[in-house]
Design a protein around this nucleic acid. Structure first.
Lengths: 262, 262
DNA sequence: CGCTTATTTGACGTAGCTCAAGAATTGTGG
DNA sequence: CCACAATTCTTGAGCTACGTCAAATAAGCG
């Protein structure tokens, strides 16, 4: 469509290669030219410092954001002012999709460490995705993915015991970091124990005890914030385990065709 | 664009008026003509009977669905075959959005009673939403809304006690039914106690006990499947309550600027 | 009208929360 | 660089909300 009159697009493009915007473009025939159109609407922002807010509940939606480096947590406040963390966002992940429906951010977003962010004005993104069907498709996919992982998480909170929750959390971090080229087996927890507990619906004390338990079991090593995973498969077993050990009173076969939960 | 050569579009259109597709069109300047284009790609299906599956996990995504009448539950199976219900879908609500990302349904969808459904072929919906920017916007909004309510639900599962969960559940049904013109204070539970418990991450027995407790407290009347809400505000109080009564050891003011959860 | 399945109710056990206190870290000002 | 305060993390000791188990009703259903 429009001729490229780019300055430092090279570097921007490279940055986007390791970002969810990359997923957003390449897989589905979004060509080079379209990619440049997308990159042209993206703004960099000066890095957030630890505890800086990216947005607060009630802020109007101007943009959605992609984490370039660092970590951001999103959280709501309950009726009585308690914090409920709704997610941790690692490099390459998007934030703010929950604000589209009302045009207002229902959550707060806050940096857990020094964090750099790409800002994507949402109205321009919408315009662009009308012109680039592949982009529209990718946006649908990304939002759908989030719905899907939220559903997974509900299962975690509804059905799994504390150890399974923490194991799943560590595995999730491991996988997501691994996808972006970081180590899957050694990483820093950028969030506090309190944040982890809050996110997983547990008490801080429980999280702390679980870390020591996992360590004694030889699954991981915990060194302050540094986690080293020794036994990924072992963690997966723990993460999959139900609160009640499966197959208890099922001598022959578990009855019937209608598994009922809990 | 295309001239209207409609047969029974009148009735279809009326049906869509009380449907999420209505929300999907009207609010944002999707004109009459565009609405007809949308309606032309929508298929009715013969009604589902109780326990019929609309789709199963692993089925390819062909369409997303809107409930016209009846109720549908969606659920996944855990690693060990347990059912985890991810949602109940009432008239006017959409299903299947979680399948877009992989092109495969991660959940099963099953009718809880005789249910009629509109089917919207997703590829055609995508095409159309390229041509009708307002439609694209509405789709983004609907998916965003789902992400937002999922986040709310996480808070429910992570932070709220059993009574708050059930109260919130009843209020949710009440509101959603009310929006579609049904009574907010008297309705049938189309799902079993088991389903409710499963969805809320509780044991059946707990749900049963809570119903009787709510009834003794004069909040509701329970008659088999029929719920009558006497005290909506009372339920809201219960739903808002934290597991620990708020303001316990806070004589003067609750300390500080950084509310930490749990 | 038996048989299966759903719901209720009671008795009891336990996972995980609360409370409390100490240890380790981090931040701060001199 | 060091004291000191503030925060975060860990560990121990109870307590309780809710799950499990068991059994009795009550409904659906062929």
């Amino acid at each position: 469509m429009s001729a490229p009159k780019i300055l430092d697009l090279g570097s921007l493009k490279q940055a986007c290669k390791s970002c969810s915007l990359h997923d957003l473009c390449l897989p589905l025939g979004v060509g080079d030219e379209e990619l440049q159109m997308l990159e042209r609407i993206i703004n960099r922002r000066r890095p957030l410092q630890r505890k800086d807010h990216l947005y607060r509940p009630g802020d109007r939606l101007h943009s959605i954001y992609a984490v370039r480096s660092g970590t951001v947590k999103t959280y709501t406040l309950t009726d009585d002012g308690q914090e409920q963390i709704t997610g941790f966002h690692l490099p390459g992940e998007l934030l703010g999709l929950d604000a589209i429906s009302d045009g207002v951010h229902p959550c707060a977003a806050r940096a857990l460490e020094t964090t750099s962010i790409c800002e994507i004005p949402f109205d321009r993104l919408e315009e662009l995705s009308v012109r680039i069907p592949g982009l529209q498709h990718q946006l649908f996919r990304i939002m759908s993915r989030e719905i899907q992982t939220d559903e997974q998480f509900m299962m975690l909170l509804g059905k799994k015991a504390s150890d399974a929750r923490l194991a799943a959390f560590l595995l999730s971090l491991s996988t997501r970091l691994g996808m972006r080229g970081f180590s899957r087996t050694e990483f820093n927890l950028t969030m506090s124990r309190n944040d982890i507990a809050n996110y997983l619906g547990l008490a801080v004390e429980t999280v702390s005890r679980l870390f020591t338990r996992f360590q004694s079991a030889g699954l991981i090593e915990v060194n302050r914030k540094l986690i080293t995973i020794f036994d990924l498969e072992g963690l997966q077993v723990v993460a999959g385990a139900q609160p009640v050990e499966e197959l208890r009173n099922c001598p022959g076969q578990c009855e019937g065709d209608q598994p009922q939960g809990n």
